[in-house]
Design a binder for these strands. Structure first.
Length: 436
DNA sequence: ACATGCGGGCAGC
DNA sequence: GCTGCCCGCATGT
């Protein structure tokens, strides 16, 4: 929304601060949950938004006592990297999620790089005047207000889902190892259980800047047992990317543009960069600082972020062309895939709340309850580039009217029928998971 | 085991 | 007073 379009009430919404005595209550549109809030962002979530209720972030944020029980403050822990700066196969960098618990974090730093066995080191966040970026949460009426201060000066760590999945795999691997050791009656491993250099111990994240050459041979153990299936939720956040990349009703889709060119194209079109998050959420109009420029864009790329997935122009809202199910916090891998298929949304300045009043929170609830345990994809690998389904897939704009009730778990087959897809195609979607 | 939230306490500005 | 940070404790997953 352009400044001219911001009326008085919008300005009021624009100017709030988390420390204000009174926060705006005339909020017309709440934001969809932001997994990677950065810079001096402010969001207003519905109090029904479960992720907001849990004060989640894909950054590793720890609770900080600010002696104010009304405002929850969290500070960023940074990212754990390999001190040798090693690269795994396909150029993946080691960006581990710092443990939130202090003791667990100390323990974590005594461990070794899952890739090269070198020592790990914690890169602290210094993005807020030399101090960690801080996030503030405040519940007020029907809203949850979020404010971020500082700009992360380090790569994105694993998401919580990824870190949990990795721990689960380590646990499985550890149990498998101990079982086989019992059988062999010998101990030969120097590394700690689960810390071998096997693929299953590798972090799930890799650097954005080093490309995303996905291992075609990597069917991996990810889908081979129950704990790992949980990461399907994370895998399916691919959908978020393909919402963007596959929305066929969006004109002028530059599927082959790189990030910088896409940025330039966005600049030319309306001095804004589009993000999938924008597509996914009806935003509070015009409450975000317009801080993005090409330098920031390049910085984001250099920091391993996908600028397309950041809030580059969050004040921009689109008709709801999104697949409303995010399933989980996004994965860096999905972001990387998103980079592969960047598609520019239409330069349509519009607001959707009149048609779909604040669907965000409820929809998000749906997506966190999806149960895919019964859907075990095959381990065959479908390259996104090769998969016409992924390139042409377009969710139905009116789909959000057809949601099942909150209480029901989502029936994927039914969902796919809504999407005009059959089981075969739904499995193709799930086959994206081995990409990781 | 770990994440998360709360609150006491201390130190620096 | 504000802020950052450490710590212990409780609770939930």
């Amino acid at each position: 929304m352009e400044p001219d379009d911001v009326d008085f009430e919008d300005k009021e919404i624009l100017n709030w601060d988390i420390n204000d005595m009174k926060l705006p209550q005339n909020v017309k549109k709440t934001n969809w949950f932001q997994e990677w809030p950065d810079s001096y962002a402010k969001y207003i979530y519905s109090s029904e938004d479960r992720s907001a209720q849990r004060h989640l972030s894909s950054w590793a944020m720890r609770n900080t006592n600010n002696h104010n029980s009304r405002i929850l403050k969290k500070s960023c822990l940074g990212v754990v990297v390999c001190s040798r700066d090693c690269s795994a196969e396909e150029g993946r960098k080691i960006y581990l999620r710092p443990a939130i618990c202090d003791k667990a974090r100390q323990k974590q730093q005594r461990k070794h790089c899952p890739n090269c066995d070198g020592p790990l080191k914690l890169i602290p966040c210094r993005g807020h005047g030399g101090f960690p970026v801080t996030n503030f949460w405040r519940h007020d009426g029907p809203f949850i207000f979020f404010q971020s201060k500082g700009e992360h000066d380090h790569p994105k760590p694993e998401t919580k889902v990824e870190a949990e999945a990795r721990r689960a795999r380590k646990k499985v691997h550890s149990e498998t190892s101990s079982a086989s050791l019992k059988l062999k009656g010998s101990s030969e491993t120097k590394a700690l259980p689960g810390e071998t250099k096997s693929r299953e111990s590798l972090p799930l994240t890799w650097s954005f800047q080093e490309g995303i050459q996905l291992p075609g041979s990597y069917s991996g153990p990810l889908l081979s047992n129950a704990p790992q299936q949980r990461s399907l939720n994370g895998c399916l956040s691919f959908s978020k990317s393909y919402v963007f990349g596959g929305t066929t009703d969006l004109p002028d889709a530059p599927s082959s543009l790189g990030p910088t060119k896409l940025y330039e194209k966005c600049k030319l079109s309306n001095s804004r960069i589009y993000s999938s998050a924008d597509l996914l959420q009806p935003s509070v109009s015009g409450i975000y600082p317009d801080y993005e420029d090409l330098q920031a864009w390049n910085k984001n790329v250099a920091l391993g972020r996908n600028p397309l997935n950041d809030k580059c122009c969050p004040s921009y809202t689109f008709p709801l062309v999104s697949w409303p199910y995010d399933f989980s916090p996004s994965l860096n891998s999905s972001e990387s895939c998103f980079q592969q298929i960047p598609v520019e949304p239409p330069a349509v300045k519009t607001s959707c709340h009149q048609l779909w009043p604040n669907p965000g929170a409820d929809l998000y609830e749906e997506k966190v309850h999806v149960d895919f345990n019964s859907y075990i994809p095959s381990t065959s690998y479908h390259s996104p580039q090769e998969d016409p389904f992924l390139l042409t897939y377009g969710p139905h704009p009116h789909h959000q009217y057809s949601l099942p009730g909150k209480s029901s778990k989502w029936d994927l087959d039914e969902e796919m029928r809504y999407m005009g897809l059959d089981r075969c195609n739904s499995e193709m979607l799930l086959n994206l998971c081995p990409l990781r």
